[in-house]
Design a protein around this nucleic acid. Structure first.
Lengths: 210, 210
DNA sequence: TGGAATATTGACTGACCAGTCAATCTATTT
DNA sequence: AAATAGATTGACTGGTCAGTCAATATTCCA
């Protein structure tokens, strides 16, 4: 098997995946037909089945790819020597930039989560669970070094953090939030402010609670 | 048309709706058949179509009902003379209790949002938008009376608040978060703490920022 | 009681679409 | 150049299921 052939094959696969992203974003996974994907990609119907076992596998592939990148980014942020707040900043920044760069893909990832989560094997759920655990781990470290208050379970904090981000994208996707170029950076900052200034030990305070 | 007849009719309709909740929660809207709903309700297939125009209308009805209650609760909280933090507490409390009381229903509401949001007319989106606006209004008042910091747009704060709650339920639904009876009250408290202590002007601080 | 209105039944139909497959084409290797 | 392997095509099939409808049962009212 020649290298150029392998590459051409991988390119075709990618072509189909990219077409699928556009179609899924436009019509939704359920409402679209496999022929729509083939048409969008400019290939014959059957070719989709040469590269994928089923329509579901196309969606699954997109999810696995994306979440693997996501996990990589989180692990990377976690491993760097920086303040915990900056680690969270790196994560929210990555997700928001993902949306800025490829809104269709992120729309699919957000809108079809529940379908993917119920897919056989539920591999995605494992990935999502891992992501939560990694974020919770970051929060824990923040608690250990005194940056974050210790009376909020890290797992819950991770939930709130990720929830805020996801809702942000959801708002953009469904037109519930304004969407200008300036919004992206402001949004990143905002999520951090809301979540961290609620997690960080009040610099003067402590007294505030008791 | 007699009153008892009207009532019996309404009861049958309700019977079908309740059965639909269980079936949707168990199998998902897409994966279930109308006959599953009829079987679960113990009625003939055709009767579903006597009370509803389509399968979608069944789901739509559940959404409209639930979001109307939701809007009512938010409006009610908003109108009472209480600290803004307590208003938010009332909202998160209602949603968490909704899940405690009827997890199947809330699972459907959470899991099938995007399908409902894309439904013709998109009435749900209007309701959701209204909910966001009402919550944002509450935050605004908090900003006006000095309880909340003014440098975070109310709309975004509402987003983060609702996002945290929704992610909480999502975590429970997909088994990403532990679920004991004690969890519910702790969770309510937690959401408030994360979000409000990030929004509220630091009691001693202010200095913290600049 | 009789007849009108409404409720209930479930077999049936027509459309839809995921996935198959046999045929054809293109590239690679010897 | 012939042979082999992989890529590409699109017509076709089989199963599924939402929605229809004509028949039957029940309730209501005069």
């Amino acid at each position: 098997m020649s290298a150029s052939r392998t590459k051409a094959s991988a390119d075709k696969r990618r072509l189909i995946l990219d077409a699928a992203v556009r179609v899924f974003a436009r019509q939704g996974f359920h409402a679209c037909r496999v022929s729509d994907i083939a048409d969008e990609a400019g290939v014959a119907y059957g070719l989709v089945y040469h590269y994928f076992d089923s329509k579901d596998e196309v969606l699954d592939t997109l999810f696995l790819e994306r979440w693997n990148v996501m996990l990589e980014v989180i692990r990377d942020a976690d491993s760097r020597p920086m303040p915990v707040r900056d680690k969270l900043a790196a994560i929210v920044s990555f997700i928001v930039d993902s949306y800025r760069h490829d809104p269709d893909l992120m729309k699919v990832i957000i809108v079809e989560v529940t379908r993917a989560a119920n897919s056989p094997g539920r591999t995605h759920l494992d990935q999502i669970r891992t992501a939560y655990e990694l974020i919770a781990g970051i929060v824990s470290k923040g608690q250990a070094d005194g940056t974050f208050r210790a009376d909020i379970e890290a797992r819950f904090a991770a939930m709130a953090f990720y929830g805020a981000i996801e809702q942000l994208l959801t708002g953009w996707i469904f037109g519930l939030l304004p969407l200008g170029e300036g919004e992206f950076e402001r949004a990143k900052q905002l999520v951090l402010e809301v979540v961290c200034d609620g997690l960080e030990v009040s610099p003067v305070g402590e007294a505030a609670v008791g």
